[in-house]
């Protein structure tokens, strides 16, 4: 495990399939309901579908496939994030609080999303929006 830097950063935390994750707070929007999405034929397999909310088309990303989880996520809660004016959302099990951390670590056992922070001895893996969108080849 490697210590990366000491700058304090705020994150929104959430859980998926029993594991804690965090996303930098400056990139995220609100938690939203992402059920009944419109599937898109021949889209990247990580795309669950499209929904329409608050005047925007939102692309829902399947977190189970993104993170290679064995269990299919059944919950409709999604955490939205932005790239420019476009909105994406990742389905999560449960949204949690804002956390702060100064140190970022790297888990070399993971192939992707290796960075994590430690809050009360728990690891929160950082899901960086740009890294997520790279997986979608966008």
């Amino acid at each position: 495990m490697t210590k990366m830097n000491k700058r304090a950063t705020k994150y929104i935390s959430f859980s998926i399939d029993g594991t804690y994750y965090a996303m930098p707070v400056n990139a995220v929007g609100p938690f939203i309901k992402g059920d009944n999405s419109l599937p898109v034929p021949k889209a990247n397999e990580l795309i669950k579908g499209l929904i329409y909310q608050n005047g925007k088309i939102i692309t829902i990303i399947d977190s189970a496939k993104l993170l290679n989880l064995p269990k299919q996520n059944k919950f409709a809660t999604c955490l939205s994030f932005y790239r420019g004016e476009e909105v994406f959302a990742l389905n999560v099990d449960e949204g949690s609080e804002t956390v702060k951390s100064t140190n970022i670590f790297i888990d070399r056992n993971k192939k992707k999303f290796k960075k994590y922070i430690k809050i009360n001895k728990n690891k929160f893996y950082i899901l960086d929006p740009e890294e997520i969108l790279k997986e979608l080849a966008l």
């Binding site: 021949k42 889209a43 088309i57 692309t59 790239r83 476009e86 966008l138």
Partner: peptide, 10 residues
């Protein structure tokens, strides 16, 4: 509405 990125190549 504005075309999302995932559809632009289609």
């Amino acid at each position: 509405k504005k075309t999302p990125s995932i559809l632009k190549k289609s």
